[in-house]
Design a protein around this nucleic acid. Sequence first.
DNA 1: CGCGTATGCTTCATATATGAATTTTATATG
DNA 2: CATATAAAATTCATATATGAAGCATACGCG
Lengths: 147, 147
Amino acid sequence: MKHTRIQQSAQGEAGRQLMFCFVMAGRAIEQRLEDALGPVGLSLAKFGALTHLVEAGEPLNLSECAKKMACVRSNITQLMDRLEADGLVRREEDPDDRRAIRAAVTAQGARRQAAGAKEVARVQRQLIDVLGDTDHEAVQRLLLTIV
Amino acid sequence: MKHTRIQQSAQGEAGRQLMFCFVMAGRAIEQRLEDALGPVGLSLAKFGALTHLVEAGEPLNLSECAKKMACVRSNITQLMDRLEADGLVRREEDPDDRRAIRAAVTAQGARRQAAGAKEVARVQRQLIDVLGDTDHEAVQRLLLTIV
DNA sequence: CGCGTATGCTTCATATATGAATTTTATATG
DNA sequence: CATATAAAATTCATATATGAAGCATACGCG
C-alpha cells in the first residue's frame, strides 16, 4: 500500500503542481523575512523601499521608486505615507519638476535600513544552509528565467 | 578590508540575493495565474478556495478551509463573503456544531472551478516549457524543503 | 503662444492578508 | 451541574497591492 494518502492529508497537498511549489516557497521566504524584520520595526515592503533609496544615494522620485519596486505608483504613495509617519523618509519637492516629489531617507531611516539588512542577511544564511550542497548559481539562473 | 560594497552594489538587479529570486519567481508565477484566471472570473485566492472545496467533495468548515489554505480565519470569512456574492459558494449551518459554518460549492462554483483548472493547467504547461530539461522532481523537492 | 497630450502624484474603491477583540457555542473538570 | 476554558465565526483596524479617476504641471508642435 502506497502512502500517497498520508502525504496528502499530512501536508495539505504534497502532490501539488510544480508551479504552486514555487508560489509557496516564495511566500514562505517572504514570511521569514517579515518575521525577521518585524522586531526591527520594518516590513519587507518598507525595507525594500528604504534599500532602494539608500542604494541610490540620493532622493528618488516616487515614479522611480515605483519602477524599481515593480509596482504601481499609488502603492508607493501609501508606502511613503507610512514611511514618513515612521520618520524614516521625508518628502521633498523636486526643484526641476514641480509635479514631482522626491523621497529622501532620514538618518533614522538609514539606521533602520542597516539594521534590517543585518536581519535579511541572517535569513539569507539560513536559506543557504537549508539548500545544503545544491548549486546556488544554477538555482538562481532557473529562478531568474522564470521571472 | 571587506567587500560588502561590491556585493551590495556591483551587479544591481542581476546580483540580487538568492532569497529575493525565490520571492520574485513566486510572485511572477502568481501574477501569471492571476492573469490566466481573471478572464474566467476568478482570482488565485478564489480558485484555491473552490479547488479545496471541490476536492474535498463535501462542504467544509471555514476553519478547515483556513487550515487547508494556510491562512487565518478572518481571511476566509472575507473570501467566502466574496465567493458567496459571486454565487460560487453557499454558507450552510453545520448540524453537528452550531458554532460552525460550512462552505458548499454551488453548481456554478464547480463549473467555474473547472474552467479555472483548465487555465491553471495551461500556465503549468508553460512553466514546464520554460524549465526545459531541468529535473522537475529535484526542483520540487528543493522547493518543498524550503516551504 | 496656446493647446493637446503625456507625466507625476494623490484619492478612491476594491482584493487579499493579518491579528486583536468579540460573540456564540462546546467541552472538560471540579 | 456550574463554571472555566477552548474553539468557530465575525468584526474592526491595518498593511500591502492594484487600477481607475482626477488634478497639476511639463512639453511638443502648429
